[in-house]
Amino acid sequence: MSSTVIELNKVTFGYHADRPVLQELDWVVPAGARVGIVGANATGKSTLLHICMGLRRVQSGDVVVYGQRRVTERDFREVRARMGLLFQDSDNQLFCPTVLDDVAFGPLHLGATPAAAQTAAREALKTVGLPGYEERITSRLSAGEKKCVALATNLAMQPDTLLLDEPTSFLDEPSRARLLDVLARLSVTLVMVSHDHEFMKALTTTRYCLRDGRLVTDG
C-alpha cells in the first residue's frame, strides 16, 4: 500500500470558465493522517472533497489517489469502494425510503449478499448509536439523525479513508460527543471540513485553510 492517500498537483477547477474555485492547488494527505480544513463559505471546501471522490473532473492538474493517477469514471470506482464521503446535505446522501435500505445499499452494490449487507448495516447503525432505526422512514428523521444515518451508510462499506463535510452541523451535544468518540476510535485516514473548531482540534493533527483557491497551513 502506498504511503499517500490523496495527492493533488496543481489542480485547477471551476464551475464556470471565468470563475475558478480552486487554482493550482497542491495537497498531500499521507495514509493514516487526520487532516482538518477550514475556510470561509463558498471557498470550495465541498468541491475539493468531491474532486477527491471523482464527482467533479478537474480542468487541469493531476489527481492521484491511492498511488494512481485517476482520470476516468472507471479509475474512481476503486476509490469510491475504499473512500467514504459524508455529504454536507444528508438529504442528498440518503436516497432510499427506509434507513435499512439506505445503509445496506453500499455493501450490496459492492457485491455482498443481501443477508451480509443487512448485517453490515445493523452493525454500522449500532456504531453510530442508532440501533433499532432499521425500519424508520428516512424523510421523517430529524436533521441530526439523518447525519448519523449518513455516517452509517459510509461505515457499512468499511472504508479506509473518510472525507467528512461538516459532520457536526445539526448535531446536539450528546450526538456530537458520540460522533467524536466514534471517529476517534476508527483507524482510518480522516479528512474533515468543519466550522466547529473544538471538534476539529480534538480529532485532527494537521489543519489547512482554503483561501483564494489554495490550501495554506493553518496554525
Partner: peptide
C-alpha cells in the same frame, strides 16, 4: 440540482448501473 447530487451519492456507494434488491 438535487438529482445531480443524488446521482453523485449513488456513485459513492458503489452503484454503476445495476440495482440490487435488498429485502427478503
Amino acid at each position: 440540482d438535487r438529482a445531480e447530487q443524488v446521482a453523485d451519492a449513488m456513485k459513492c456507494r458503489g452503484h454503476h448501473g445495476t440495482y440490487a434488491a435488498t429485502r427478503t
